[in-house]
Design a protein around this nucleic acid. Structure first.
Lengths: 118, 118
DNA sequence: CGGCATATACCGGCCGCTGATATATTGACG
DNA sequence: CGTCAATATATCAGCGGCCGGTATATGCCG
């Protein structure tokens, strides 16, 4: 049941739901907030992802509320979902560290070595 | 020129090339090393990505060597590529931090609050 | 001399994301 | 009181990157 690694939209949806149960439209706004406005979830992405994540039992419907005649379907993250998110978190940090090392090596190589730089 | 965010294979290819110029087959092995053996690049993924990255001028052909009758085509990362990788590094760290906050909030919520947990 | 590692290359298919469109209700503004 | 934006969920065609498989060629080892 493992299409890891997660892509960014899915990752941020899980992150938004980790903090607390939320309904779809709220997830969109929370993801925008989490990402400093960089990521604006499309409706198609969101509801497709919610269905998929629910099928995988990484999230589950928490409850449904009707507010002012509008339905709000709340989802919560499951233990499985939290475990996946935690694993993904480790993967992101490992990749970030690897890239940082690579870029540092490049910076060093540009300063010191060969014929031209001076 | 911006299909950001990068997916993991592309990200790790750029990372491998940031450290030093490498040829395709060497990239596969370096990516395996960088990821602790977790990521095994497929030939189709690698050469497709190299072509795509070269088209975007994020990498460039460095030189070609024939060793024992086998061609080795070396690629190096460009300044543009390094800038993209650096930006991606920041994105990964930001997302990792966001997920860590979310998971921490969940852990706290599971310990303290409502009816059942005790 | 058969098999494995090296080295590059191509292609069908899958799957998640994009962008668009649809529907329904409520609140704000003129 | 009419109109538009925001709220809230839903569906779908298309795209693009990755996977898995296959192909080709050479060198090394047993």
């Amino acid at each position: 049941m493992a299409p890891l690694p997660l892509q960014e939209p899915t990752f941020l949806i899980l992150t938004a739901l980790a903090e607390q149960p939320r309904y779809g439209y709220d997830v969109i706004q929370q993801v925008a907030a989490l990402s400093g406005g960089r990521v604006t979830l499309r409706a198609g992405t969101l509801y497709g992802a919610l269905d998929r994540l629910a099928d995988q039992s990484w999230i589950a419907v928490d409850r449904e509320e009707a507010v002012d005649g509008r339905l709000r379907r709340y989802y919560r993250i499951t233990d499985d979902g939290a475990a996946v998110l935690s694993a993904e978190l480790g993967r992101l940090r490992a990749n970030a560290d690897a890239a940082a090392r690579g870029l540092r090596a490049r910076a060093a190589a540009l300063l010191t070595p060969p014929p031209a730089p001076a």
